[in-house]
């Protein structure tokens, strides 16, 4: 099994702790004048998303997590699994509900997503930063009504609900930032 020495620690590195994959969010090297050096790291559990702090004696090694980011195309969902394909090799992967908790709101067939594979199984699915989705339901906007900050809820084709400006209408395609879940603009054909 591959391992990383603390010398190689940097943010983004994926390591295995107690059987779970973690990603290093922050790494700080501390050393008193003449003494033992330490690496203080903030790490995020890639399965649960929980963030914890750990301390390592510098020079120690930690097992590397076999975690790989791969770009794949979203194919379809059968309700239980979400299916993806690597465009170059046509290899297919099925992600379970845990892997798409966040992402499923934004998945549109044919879109390219980043899939994090752990031991070759999809661990998390990251949708593109911006997606273009069609509004399937929203109230007609009333001009001049700015009581709610000038926004109204709109349901998208994926089932996600986002706040849109009043002038946006049903059937229009909008651009959404998937990291914040916020409306960006209308998309004109």
């Amino acid at each position: 099994m591959a391992s990383y020495s603390t010398n190689e620690f940097r943010s983004g590195l994926k390591i295995l702790i107690d059987g779970d994959p973690f990603i290093i969010v922050e790494n700080e090297f501390v050393k008193p004048g003449k003494g033992q050096a330490f690496n203080r790291v903030r790490i995020r559990n890639l399965k649960t998303g929980r963030v914890v702090d750990k301390t390592y004696k510098s020079g120690e090694s930690v097992e590397a997590a076999d975690v790989m980011d791969t770009e794949m195309q979203y194919l379809y969902s059968d309700g239980e699994f979400w299916h993806f394909m690597v465009p170059d090799t046509f290899e297919q992967y099925a992600a379970d509900g845990n892997a798409v908790t966040e992402a499923k709101n934004w998945l549109k067939e044919q879109d390219h997503c980043q899939i994090t594979l752990w031991n070759n199984v999809p661990l998390t699915v990251t949708p593109p930063n911006f997606v273009e989705l069609k509004i399937v339901e929203t109230d007609p906007g009333v001009r001049g009504d700015t009581a709610q900050g000038g926004v109204k809820p709109a349901t998208l084709e994926t089932g996600a609900v986002v706040k849109v400006p009043l002038f946006v209408e049903e059937g229009e395609v909008i651009r959404v930032d998937t990291r914040t879940g916020e409306y960006v603009s209308r998309v004109k054909d």
Binding site: I17, V30, K31, P32, G35, Q36, F38, R40, V52, D53, K54, T55, Y56, K57, E60
Partner: peptide, 26 residues
């Protein structure tokens, strides 16, 4: 002081003192 003790091999006294100095005292 909210400093996680290192995983792995237990630290000796001097190493713990070093860690305190570098992460809490400084």
């Amino acid at each position: 002081n909210g400093i996680a003790s290192p995983a792995g091999s237990p630290l000796e006294r001097d190493e713990l003192l070093d860690l305190l100095l570098a992460t809490v005292v400084e």
